[in-house]
């Protein structure tokens, strides 16, 4: 309209409706998922370390998966759980799932394990090859007891079957070189790994971690000190692990959406800062 003053660029950027920003994020994230656009993904050392550790495990010993995630962090932890179980099955390593972080974690862990078995298309039988030991209230005395004598801390599986009647748990007494359990992998959306650092780490048992991306930066010192044998960082960690074992899954598909969303956020950050800088330059020009 004639006579109406045009807004300067910095004000136009500054006045973008936040709902438009959300709508943009929604479309940018959804498009790669619908179109199945794939972006190249490279594998970083921490997931490779975890895969190498699992590859070196003896087949006559049990692996414990401490599954401590619930619906809130499902998008990050479930693909980690699925891909790790797939790797264990490929290596014919029997495993036991146990939850100490969330009471509803055993149900979700069970669904993820059954999905992994279905994807691997092998007869992996409950009770003989794997077991779900359910939720245990992990007080400090319980953790100490579990690390020293597993049967003292775990009496039954999540359906109430006594562990001495479950073939895969027969003879499993303790962790370590002279024990029957070779490793524990904590897949978690909370701080459950701290308990394992306190009690399991001093025994020298291999400890792996799959955690949410929020938690990951704090875990790198533990990787550096050798207390962790490998680390999966959120959905990206799951995607990298899928690449390592050659089993495409949810992680790989979702990473394209993740990368496009990051790009979008970077553009928004640049625009936001551009608006501030232009405004500052304009105010300085007026003062002169």
């Amino acid at each position: 309209m004639r006579g109406q003053r045009r807004l300067p660029l910095e004000q136009i950027i500054g006045r973008i409706d936040r709902r438009l920003v959300y709508a943009g994020l929604f479309l940018i994230t959804l498009a790669p998922l619908v179109g199945r656009w794939a972006l190249p993904l490279y594998v970083t050392p921490p997931p490779k370390m975890l895969a190498d550790t699992i590859n070196a495990l003896p087949q006559d010993k049990l692996v414990f998966i401490s599954s401590n995630w619930d619906a809130g962090t499902q998008a990050e932890n479930r693909p980690q759980m699925t891909v790790l179980v797939r790797h264990l099955i490929r290596r014919r390593l029997k495993f036991a799932s146990i939850s100490i972080g969330a009471p509803n974690a055993p149900q979700l862990a069970n669904a993820a394990i059954e999905q992994a078995i279905q994807l691997e298309k092998v007869p992996w039988v409950y009770g003989q090859d794997w077991v779900n030991l359910g939720y245990k209230l992990a007080t400090e005395p319980w953790l100490r007891s579990f690390v020293r004598q597993i049967p003292e801390a775990v009496k039954e599986d999540w359906k109430g079957t006594p562990v001495d009647q479950i073939p895969v748990m027969r003879g499993v007494q303790k962790f370590g070189p002279d024990g029957q359990a070779s490793m524990l992998i904590d897949i978690t959306g909370s701080a459950t790994i701290d308990g394992w650092y306190r009690y399991l780490s001093p025994t020298g048992v291999k400890l792996g971690l799959g955690c949410t991306a929020v938690m990951a930066p704090e875990q790198y010192p533990f990787l550096d000190s050798g207390q962790l044998s490998g680390l999966l960082t959120g959905m990206k960690g799951a995607a990298e692990y899928e690449q390592i074992i050659g089993a495409q899954g949810f992680g790989t598909t979702a990473m394209a959406g993740q990368s496009f969303a990051h790009l979008y956020i970077l553009i928004l950050i640049i625009l936001g800062n551009l608006s501030l800088v232009l405004g500052w330059l304009e105010r300085r020009r007026r003062r002169r």
Binding site: A75, P217, G257
Partner: peptide, 26 residues
């Protein structure tokens, strides 16, 4: 710098949760 890296990880985590919901819906 470390806090910046942590915040970047937090953004990544929140987007992962959003992608999880999008996948469920679509």
């Amino acid at each position: 710098i470390a806090f910046g890296a942590m915040f970047g990880s937090t953004v990544m985590a929140r987007l992962s949760l959003f992608i999880g919901r999008l996948t469920f819906l679509f």
